[in-house]
Amino acid sequence: MNLRTIAIWAVSVPLVIAALGFFHQALAAAGWIAFFTWPFYFEVILNGLLQGVMYSLVALGFVLIFKASGIFNFAQGSLVLFAALTMVGLIEMGLPWPLAFVATAVVMVGVAIAVERVVLRPLVNQPHIILFMATIGIFYFMDGFGQTLWGSDVKVLDIGIPKDPIFILGGVFEGGLLVQSFDVIAALCGALLVAVLAVFFQYTRIGRALRAVADDHQAALSVGIPLKTIWAIVWSVAGIVALVAGIMWGGKLGVQFTLALIALKALPVLILGGFTSIPGAIIGGLIIGAGEQVAENFVGAAIGGAIQDWFAYMLAMVFLLFRPQGLFGEKIIERV
């Protein structure tokens, strides 16, 4: 990302936020939507951004696997659910949460290795759609397996993150903006995770090998990079990312089957940000999170609600019509 891009973003983001605000203000003035106040608008955006970080966390798992193996891993959502279920199960068995975390991470690595051995290895060189279907198979299997093992009741996952409402920016807005402390902490954890991953992939030997694999499988193999090991590592990392996402989402909503479906929300994030870009996943998540909340709270409330079921997908789809390569993808020059 060069200086020019940063400058463009720094200018355009506040502009878009302001323009959207005025747009909604105008809608309210015309009586099309019920009400509009600037503090509420900013509160909605802020909470949307925090929500967006959670989407990014799930999207991150997709990006890792797509980058390394070109596989669109539909099972990421079920990995999130499975990780959260396992962690809750271990805590219920009496383990303190840090220990349960480590144990679950080990389990996720085991799952990753099993997936590589049993599913990916026999399917090397198959068309992408076959691999995609295989991950849907994994999705079903992991869902069934997790719930067979740990039951399907809604469980509470509490690792001691405070869930109090807090008010921030009291000096700017009267009464401040209401956010959940849990969301803020979750966002911080997400940011930390991204930073660790970035360092891991940029500066370690495995990271370099991974980027080589992402570029060209055969070329990577020919210079002696162990493809299978790399895949196992990537799936392990994606499993651990799923664990973190599972803890955050599970802490927020309770650990239940719907966690696996939340992962679907990561898909529009991915097409906004591009399947191969980690910063894309983050920024895509923020845009989807904020956009969805704004749409739901103002226009959505006026036309009957629940538009967050589809808003993210529509936003991503319309966006793609104008910029098919996504936010950070390069313009594709096709060769024959």
């Binding site: 295989a134 069934g144 719930q147």
Partner: peptide, 24 residues
């Protein structure tokens, strides 16, 4: 009934993968 449903999910998923490996 719930357990049947979950095991069904598992077998279903495993069969999908099996099929793709044996005859894509």
């Amino acid at each position: 009934v719930a357990l049947v449903a979950h095991i069904e999910f598992m077998i279903f998923g495993a069969l999908i993968v099996f099929f793709l490996i044996v005859e894509p």
